Computed example of a mutant assay.
Amino acid sequence: MTSGSMVAPARNAFREQQWREAHERYLVCARTVFANLGYHAATVADVVAEANGSRATFYAHFRDKADVAACLFERVLPAAAGIYRRVAELPVLSRDAVRSWLDEHALGFWLRYAVEVDAVNHAMAADPSVATRHYQWVLEATRELRPYLAAWTGPRADAGLTRASLLVLQLERLCYHWLVRGVAHDREQMLDILADLWFRELVLLREGPER
Rank of each mutant, 00 (worst) to 15 (best):
G4L: 10
G4C: 05
A8T: 13
A8P: 00
A10Q: 09
A10W: 09
R11P: 01
R15T: 01
Q17C: 10
A22F: 03
A22R: 01
Y26M: 05
V28D: 02
C29P: 00
F34C: 09
L37Y: 04
L37M: 04
G38V: 04
A42R: 05
V44E: 03
V44H: 01
G53Y: 05
A56H: 01
F58M: 00
H61P: 04
F62S: 01
A66M: 04
V68Y: 03
C71T: 04
E74P: 01
V76D: 05
L77K: 15
G82E: 09
R85V: 03
S94F: 04
D96R: 11
S100K: 08
W101C: 09
L102W: 08
H105E: 15
A106G: 06
A106L: 10
L107C: 10
W110G: 07
W110K: 00
V115F: 01
V120T: 03
N121Y: 07
A126P: 06
S129R: 14
S129D: 14
V130G: 00
T132L: 10
Y135P: 00
Q136F: 00
E140F: 07
E140D: 15
A141P: 01
T142I: 10
R146I: 01
Y148R: 02
L149M: 10
W152S: 11
T153Y: 04
G154C: 08
R156C: 05
R156G: 00
D158Y: 06
L161H: 10
L161W: 12
T162A: 11
S165Q: 13
L166K: 03
L169E: 15
L174C: 05
L174Q: 12
Y176C: 00
W178Y: 12
L179C: 13
L179K: 14
L179G: 09
V180M: 06
V180W: 07
V180Y: 08
V183A: 14
H185E: 14
R187T: 15
E188I: 13
E188G: 15
M190D: 15
L194D: 13
L194P: 08
L205Y: 13
L205E: 10
R206D: 15
R206N: 06
R206K: 14
E207D: 09
E207M: 11
E207Q: 15
G208I: 06
P209G: 08
R211T: 10
